[in-house]
């Protein structure tokens, strides 16, 4: 099934208009006391969740917005924010 994503500016659009921006890993870690290993983990390590995941997307062929949304990686469908994450 084709992926449909909801851009905050343009609304629902074909997934081919977007570029994947990776998992949302939360805010950049504070530099005070940051070890190289912790920084490496933040930059390179992913959860690769089989299920609902918060991700960054870029509306490359449209308005140029970066935004986050939730996607079920087992079905490749955009889903509502899970209650547990609110």
């Amino acid at each position: 099934m084709a992926l449909i994503l909801t851009c905050p500016v343009c609304g629902k659009r074909n997934g081919y208009e977007f570029r994947y921006g990776g998992e949302d890993k939360g805010p950049r870690p504070a530099e005070a006391g940051l070890t190289p290993a912790a920084w490496c983990d933040y930059v390179h390590m992913n959860k690769c969740t089989a299920g609902v995941l918060k991700e960054w997307w870029f509306h490359r062929d449209g308005c140029g917005s970066w935004f986050t949304t939730w996607r079920d990686t087992t079905k490749n469908l955009e889903v509502a924010q899970p209650e547990a994450s609110k």
């Binding site: 500016v9 343009c10 659009r13 208009e17 509306h59 490359r60 062929d61 449209g62 308005c63 140029g64």
Partner: peptide, 10 residues
């Protein structure tokens, strides 16, 4: 206004 692909061009 639409901002989107036409002939695959933004």
């Amino acid at each position: 206004l639409y901002q989107g692909p036409f002939c695959h061009v933004p």
